[in-house]
């Protein structure tokens, strides 16, 4: 008689991540779409870096002047606005490009596992046919993250009003304000886990976005925390970058250092994404195989 436990794929977080990393290292073509993501992000950062300067300021100056202030068009205050501008650019890049590149990588990984690795063009054609669903899935996960940020923002606004400089209220204020970037990170991981198998299902099973979401939730029923840890462990690599970003003081150091930290964060985030989605796809394929 079949043992039900044998039907469940073995859930070892570190083992799954290690297997995914080995797959990535031995089949570097899976990483190729991520190199395109890095290129696009670096190019957009470069353009924003030159936004206050001629000739790009012809386009950007009126926008920055209207939405923020004239001061941010001058050195070194432009470096205060740059991370914010880049964050807005990243939102668009994530929805339109990142998500598609992640889907391409998953499709490539699936092709390698199914011994179809030399069919790059057909993989591209098949994945692009699901582009709308992939982008929709990215928009949905992005909206959930934004909802959390808005919700957390209410706590943040309340914490800012606390006037105490000692005692329990001061501790709460420090935790809420100082912990904001880390809370945002953890919640992003949570949302990644929530939508963990949507893109693999869209790409591999050729399903539409809402069907993929329902099927993904079915898989998550028995493996949510496993998927969360799969997303969380590689994300720890980003924590030192976050510490660096939050500790840089513009006045005391070279302002351009903020740009270098942004460049570093691009590489780290893309690398972390590659590991996370390769691991999730690997686990999904093992679940699929058992079925």
């Amino acid at each position: 008689m079949d043992n039900i436990e044998d039907q469940k794929p073995k859930r070892r977080v570190i083992g799954t991540i290690r297997a995914a990393v080995n797959t990535l290292m031995s089949h570097k073509e899976i990483l190729f779409p991520f190199t395109f993501v890095i290129f696009i992000q670096l190019l957009s950062l470069e353009i924003l870096y030159f936004a206050p300067r001629y000739p790009l300021n012809i386009f950007f100056a009126p926008i920055i002047r209207t939405l923020w202030s004239e001061a941010y068009l001058h050195y070194p205050l432009n470096f205060i606005l740059l991370p914010k501008l880049f964050q807005y650019a990243e939102m668009g890049i994530y929805i339109l490009i990142n998500s598609f590149c992640i889907a391409l990588s998953i499709a490539k990984l699936y092709a390698i596992v199914s011994d179809k690795k030399d069919q790059t063009k057909s993989i591209f054609r098949e994945t692009i046919s699901s582009y709308v669903h992939i982008a929709l899935a990215a928009i949905l996960s992005f909206l959930v993250v934004m909802l959390f940020f808005k919700f957390y923002g209410l706590f943040l606004n309340r914490a800012m009003k606390i006037q105490s400089t000692t005692g329990i209220f001061f501790v709460i204020k420090t935790l809420v304000i100082g912990g904001a970037p880390y809370c945002n990170l953890i919640f992003s991981v949570f949302v990644t886990a929530l939508f963990a198998y949507v893109v693999p299902i869209i790409v591999i099973e050729k399903k539409k976005v809402f069907t993929a979401i329902i099927q993904s939730f079915k898989i998550l029923k028995g493996s949510f925390w496993f998927s969360f840890w799969i997303a969380f462990v590689p994300t720890l690599l980003y924590v030192p970058v976050l510490l660096l970003r939050n500790s840089l003081n513009l006045e005391s150091l070279l302002p351009e250092l903020k740009v270098l930290v942004l460049v570093l964060s691009i590489f780290v985030i893309v690398f972390v994404d590659a590991i996370i989605y390769a691991s999730l796809a690997t686990y999904y394929l093992s679940v699929r195989e058992r079925k």
């Binding site: 395109f36 290129f39 670096l42 470069e46 353009i47 030159f50 300067r53 001629y54 000739p55 790009l56």
Partner: peptide
């Protein structure tokens, strides 16, 4: 990719070499 990024940087820097920024 590297050549494009470096070229864009070099061109945009050159265009504003004696500018206000």
């Amino acid at each position: 990719y590297i050549v494009i990024l470096i070229s864009v940087f070099a061109i945009l820097s050159f265009l504003d070499i004696n500018g206000e920024y």
